[in-house]
Design a protein around this nucleic acid. Structure first.
Length: 574
RNA sequence: CGGGGCGUAGCGUAGUGGCUAGCGCGCCUGCUUUGGGAGCAGGAGACCGGAGGUUCGAAUCCUCUCGCCCCGACCA
């Protein structure tokens, strides 16, 4: 039983000056956490109980799925991370240190290497697979900018799992098992979330999804179709390729468009000279880039920008992309800045990538590769060819859902989980093989799966709080019931004490406000701030033999007979 | 790393060259009070982030430095 008279807790009347987002503000005010340094927090009793409740739920679901818990050190020698090149990849985000002998160590940002090596050292047969291991561990990342309290910290608690399979199909099954376990976990944690397609990135994986908890203070932007539920990372958003009939389109025609190096200036001149209500969307923007030293053109409708992050994510194998600079134009005199068109791409040695909106048969206004002139009626497939379609245009709210064509919305969210088919990259780098039934060694294929545990505390606080305080789902609240005793004589305190132990006997955790010196107002405010789901007030109503039962979330209040209080609480919590 | 803001008691803050750094909350003592952050009286608590400088005199001006928050880049 948590007794407020002795609980190590000091709630704050004012918002802390250095906290802006609700979860941070309230977790500090209600005495759950305290900041030690940027992105580094201490957990006070209430916070630590809440954190451990989340861990418990996760553990129960992981165990139920048949995954086995292990535990690695956070402090590790760098060797394995060097072999997988992650020391370089993480760069300054990696916390590094030396021991007294000058040996290189790091504080682990995540543990793929160690799990891979552990399995390698214990197992060597296909008969041992599939296998899924997990741990709940403190991770360290020296973030360039920690922010939003414990949403993005430099030290944080993460549940990370890894699956090991012989075959791609096995990986798919392990992945789906984790996906199901995550759904159960987040449902129990009382979170609202969307499962969002993500890019697997350059790590060679094939499938990846993020669990995103929608919330205005979230730092992830994603696309959501409110009609069919399609959800995707901006990078992973798909655009449906259409087709157009170009048989009636007149022949390509080059026209003078003096002084029109930008889309806006071009549209103005077109409408002045030809009328017809041209818009940026009728023009074709040719963005020239250098991808790993090779010149490429990316075509997008004139009213959209190229989203470099999307482009990069969708061009696997390409390491570095940059925009054309003046020096590049100087080296390629045929490419006239502001008047580039794809018609002569072959001549210029350009590989032409295009957004799917530049569909076969569609007709565009684009540069004529000559200063101050553009070409009209430039038809895809007739007047130029596209080497490859690639998702590259910026995504906007209102774009068509790839599944049902409904306009999508763009929303913000906190990433609370990420599941990821890693494939064989780590196993390859660290030489994790098992002998197959034919006696030949096979490289194991892996998945990695993460839940931000400490972040979940903040994410849940963000999603559930109201103006007066925190408001936890029962499963993770620091107590199920908060009993407040008020009055000046002993009776309500004795009654509250009895009621508390009665409720505890029913298996519900109780917080009891047994402070004799605090005024009722203070106790009510504290109870609301702390956010335990059921608040029972033992006080004034006692003269009629009643206590007041309040539901924190709804504010609903009712008076019940003292004798019925415990069963009423049980009923409200079920 | 670029841009912006801020460091004064546990928390929130006032104080822009001049007396002993002020107030509210919280904390301690006493009395009163006890259903919405009680009242009165008394009290403890601050090397004004740090270093250096200017000045008869610096929380206040200057230089450097450390830290924190926000936006972006980055990360996921």
């Amino acid at each position: 039983m948590l007794r407020m008279s002795t609980l190590f807790l000091r709630t704050l009347r004012d918002d802390p000056a250095d906290a802006e987002v609700a979860s941070h503000r309230l977790l500090v005010r209600a005495g759950y956490v305290r900041r030690i340094a940027a992105g580094i927090y201490s957990w006070l009793p209430l916070g630590y109980i809440t954190l451990r409740n989340i861990e418990r739920v996760i553990r129960e679901e992981m165990d139920a799925a048949g995954f086995q818990e292990v535990h690695f050190p956070a402090l590790l020698p760098v060797d394995a991370y060097q072999q997988t090149n992650r020391v370089t990849e993480y760069g300054p985000n990696l916390f590094r240190l030396k021991d007294r002998k000058g040996g290189d160590y790091l504080l682990a940002p995540t543990h793929e290497e160690m799990f891979t090596l552990m399995v390698k050292s214990e197992y060597s047969s296909y008969k041992d697979l599939p296998l899924s291991l997990y741990q709940i561990q403190t991770k360290y990342r020296d973030e360039a900018r920690p922010r939003s309290g414990i949403i993005r910290g430099r030290e944080f608690v993460m549940k990370d799992s890894y699956s090991f399979d012989l075959t791609d199909q096995g990986l798919e099954e392990s992945y789906n098992k984790h996906r199901d376990a995550y759904i159960k976990t987040f449902d129990r944690l009382g979170m609202r979330y969307n499962i969002v397609s993500a890019m697997s990135g350059a790590m060679g994986g094939s499938r990846s999804e993020e669990f995103l908890a929608p919330c205005p203070t979230g730092e992830d932007t994603y696309v959501l179709c409110e009609s069919c539920g399609y959800a995707a990372n901006v990078e992973a958003m798909k655009t449906v390729i259409g087709h157009a009939d170009s048989s009636a389109t007149p022949a390509l025609k080059v026209v003078d468009t003096p002084n029109t190096p930008t889309i806006d200036s071009l549209v103005n001149v077109l409408n002045e000279k030809f009328g017809g209500g041209y818009t940026g969307a009728d023009t074709l923007k040719n963005v020239l880039l250098v991808a790993d030293g090779k010149n490429i053109a990316v075509l997008v409708p004139g009213d959209r920008e190229v989203d470099l992050k999307r482009l990069e994510a969708n061009l696997p194998g390409v390491l570095e992309i940059r925009l054309f600079e003046d020096a590049d134009f100087a080296k390629n005199p045929g490419l006239v800045k502001g008047y580039v068109g794809p018609q002569d791409a072959k001549k210029f040695g350009l590989t032409v990538y295009a957004d799917p909106r530049i569909a076969p048969g569609t007709s565009w206004v684009t540069g004529a590769n000559k200063k101050d002139s553009h070409a009209l009626n430039v038809v895809v497939g007739r007047d130029f060819t596209i080497d490859e379609y690639v998702e590259s245009a910026e995504v906007r709210a209102g774009d068509a859902c790839p599944d049902c064509a409904t306009p999508v919305v763009i929303d913000r969210a906190i990433e609370i989980g990420h599941i990821f088919q890693l494939g064989r990259m780590y196993a390859q780098a660290l030489d994790l093989t098992v002998l197959d039934s034919d006696g030949k060694p096979r490289v194991v294929t892996m998945g990695s799966y993460g839940i931000g545990v400490s972040r979940a505390v903040a994410a849940i606080a963000e999603q559930t709080h109201d103006e007066i305080g925190l408001c936890w789902p029962a499963e993770i609240a620091p107590a199920k019931v908060h009993i407040v005793a008020t009055g000046k004589d002993d009776n309500p305190f004795n009654v509250a004490e009895d009621l508390a132990s009665q409720i505890e006997k029913l298996g519900l955790s109780v917080m009891l406000d047994d402070r004799r010196d605090a005024s009722p107002g203070v106790k009510f405010k504290d109870a609301e701030l702390i956010g335990v789901p059921i608040i029972v007030i033992v006080g004034k109503a006692l003269v009629e033999g009643n206590v007041e039962v309040r539901v924190r979330r709804t504010g609903e209040r009712s008076e019940v007979r003292l004798a019925d209080a415990a069963s009423e609480v049980v009923k409200l919590l079920s």
